[in-house]
Design a protein around this nucleic acid. Structure first.
Length: 313
DNA sequence: ATCCAGGAACTGT
DNA sequence: ACAGTTCATGGA
């Protein structure tokens, strides 16, 4: 069987090397910019960035798949550390990476729009090719948002690490241990005190377990949100859940559902980034941000992501 | 020490 | 609808 026959979707190819699958990314994609985002915390527990490559454990069809992704001759190579049981798993892993790096997105109109915007033009130049890296797993996206509510990011990473290392499935490889984000079924069975002992606040423990129960009971899922209607309906659906307010709903729609119009306008990161980019002496008001955002319709999520990117040089 | 952090629920008007 | 209060903890 030749390579053409084994082609998965456009731009994903099997290689002669048994442990490699190749992704041919779009022109306006910068793996390096994405790595800078992915490597922003040394306390990240769910992946690592080492030596210009992205390393992550994922689970596909109930199978642990441990991959390293790196660039070679303008292509993205997915290198399987442990050999998957069949070709389908490999192609699904490539699809996962394709989606994680948002490679389906055609950024040309975003860049056109940004060139006309005095604030964005320098950002798209500096971070050209940066893609909105998502959180495909809804439970992870919700938990991460809840954990991050009203605390500094450093501590949020600590909470996520403790949570994951205690309740996530683990995989041992070459004397190291790697983790998957915990499953809602596991978290749904916990007591509040199980999480407050990890320094979750009482509230956050309640929220996370509550979300886990909803998902475990099948009352909440990515599919159910997608089916709940237009953006506003999806937002309402999420906000009806205890612990999820405007910010979290927008954040999750942006990072998990990949809604291009998602805009967590109350986010202090956005406020700080705008303050710096605009050279203001204090953070802009919501009204001022809304005014600016009139130019960003349809690309608010990308604007947000680029603004966040600007906060860690 | 003091302020604040990738907010949200609750309460009172 | 809207504003003020409470939650709770670590980082800078």
């Amino acid at each position: 069987m030749n390579k053409e026959n084994k082609r998965a979707k456009n731009n994903i190819f099997l290689d002669d090397r048994e442990n490699i699958v190749i992704i041919n990314p779009p022109e306006d994609f910068s793996f390096n910019e994405c790595l800078i985002f992915l490597g922003r915390s040394s306390n990240e527990v769910l992946h690592s960035v080492v030596d210009h490559s992205f390393i992550k454990l994922i689970k596909i069809n109930n199978e642990m798949v441990f991959i390293r992704v790196y660039e070679e001759n303008g292509n993205l190579l997915i290198e399987f550390q442990n050999q998957p049981s069949n070709v389908e798993i490999k192609l699904l892993a490539a699809n996962y990476i394709w989606d994680l790096f948002d490679l389906d997105r055609d950024l040309s109109s975003f860049y056109e729009l940004a060139k006309q915007d005095g604030l964005l033009d320098s950002l798209i130049e500096k971070y050209y090719g940066l893609r909105l890296i998502g959180i495909p797993d809804l439970f992870e996206a919700l938990c991460w948002a809840i954990m991050g509510q009203q605390i500094n990011l450093t501590f949020a990473y600590t909470l996520k690490r403790r949570f994951t290392e205690k309740y996530g499935e683990q995989f041992n490889w070459h004397d190291d241990v790697y983790f998957l984000f915990p499953n809602p079924d596991v978290i749904a069975k916990l007591e509040i005190s199980d999480l407050t002992s990890l320094q979750f606040t009482q509230r956050k423990a309640e929220y996370v377990i509550g979300v886990a129960k909803l998902m475990s009971e099948g009352k909440l899922s990515k599919e159910l949100i997608m089916e709940s209607g237009d953006y506003e309906e999806k937002c309402k659906h999420l906000i009806s859940i205890r612990g999820i307010g405007n910010w979290t709903a927008d954040y999750v729609l942006m990072k998990c559902l990949k809604e291009q119009s998602a805009f967590p306008i109350a986010d202090v990161g956005i406020h700080n980034a705008l303050k710096i980019q605009l050279g203001l002496h204090k953070k802009p008001t919501i009204e001022e941000i809304k005014e600016l955002a009139n130019n960003w319709v349809g690309w608010e999520a990308y604007v947000t992501f680029y603004l966040w990117r600007s906060l860690y040089s």
